[in-house]
């Protein structure tokens, strides 16, 4: 999962108006009807960011990080999986 401000494409300390404008833009580009998954991500990111006081409170006092070790592992797996493997290496796997 990307950090919320990256999902929306705003600076980490963007003000409320920018955030709102950008959120609306992103929703117009990804309406829930056409891109439910992407919309859900955008919405979740916006909800995390929209109230600056709440956001700060969470940053300061939140105990557990928003994701678990498993989430990081899953992400890592995706990264590893995303790297394109040279064909010669693939061929080297044909043996026993």
């Amino acid at each position: 999962m990307l950090e919320p401000h990256l999902v929306l494409g705003v600076a980490p300390n963007a003000d409320e108006a920018t955030l709102r404008r950008r959120y609306l833009e992103r929703v117009r580009e990804n309406p829930p009807e056409q891109h439910p998954q992407r919309f859900a991500e955008i919405r979740a990111a916006y909800e995390q960011l929209r109230d600056p006081t709440e956001r700060l409170k969470r940053q300061l006092f939140a105990v557990e990080s928003s994701e678990s070790l498993d989430d990081v592992i899953a992400e890592l797996r995706l990264r590893v999986q995303g790297t394109r493997i040279p064909t010669t290496i693939l061929f080297s796997l044909t043996g026993n």
Binding site: I73, L76, V80, Q81, T83, P86, I89, L93
Partner: peptide, 23 residues
């Protein structure tokens, strides 16, 4: 062994296995 080889290919070290150990 093949999995390990591939993992090294992607990351030069076996991060996934290490992560597994961490978990």
């Amino acid at each position: 062994a093949k999995v390990a080889r591939l993992e090294k290919q992607g990351t030069s070290r076996m991060v996934l296995s290490e992560m597994g150990r961490l978990r």
